[in-house]
């Protein structure tokens, strides 16, 4: 059982390298395939889309959860979206930085809320924005 502890072996390096490559690939995928300046934010609660709002119009959206307690305030300003207020226990959604590029998200796990920026071309959603 007792073998010499080598601090680092070749396979370790290969493993770490492979993970780095995968990380970069996933990053590039999000950055270039999705990563253009987005046009809309999509609000989904518990996996269901609740609405989409254009990033080019400044507005405040109060997100409520039916009979259940809780709210998040989504603010769209200067083409960026952020959550400025919420009554979730951790307030991590409020601390996240604002989003504007396609694929970027703000998550509020206690409320199962995901706000995602979606692409620039989908102008067919126009009529759908509240």
């Amino acid at each position: 059982m007792q073998k010499k502890d080598k601090r680092f072996r070749r396979s370790d390096l290969l493993f770490a390298g492979a993970i780095f490559v995968i990380a970069i690939m996933v990053y590039l995928l999000f950055h270039f395939v999705y990563g253009k300046e987005g046009a809309y934010v999509q609000v989904a609660v518990d996996g269901k889309v609740q609405g989409q709002y254009s990033l080019s119009e400044d507005r405040n959206v109060q997100i409520d959860y039916g009979q259940a307690e809780g709210f998040n305030v989504l603010v769209i300003e200067d083409g960026k979206a952020m959550v400025t207020e919420a009554d979730c226990p951790d307030k991590l959604c409020v601390k996240q930085k604002s989003i504007s590029r396609s694929g970027e998200t703000i998550v509020c796990l206690p409320h199962k809320l995901v706000i995602t920026v979606i692409g620039g071309e989908e102008s067919e959603y126009d009529g759908f924005t509240g």
Binding site: I19, I24, F30, T105
Partner: peptide, 27 residues
Amino acid sequence: VAFCVVRTEGIFYYMPVLLIAGIVTGF
């Protein structure tokens, strides 16, 4: 687990950071 909770593939946006973080803490 986070994906199961929020059911949006947008969550995988965080994968690169989490992979690197895993390497660093693991190291």
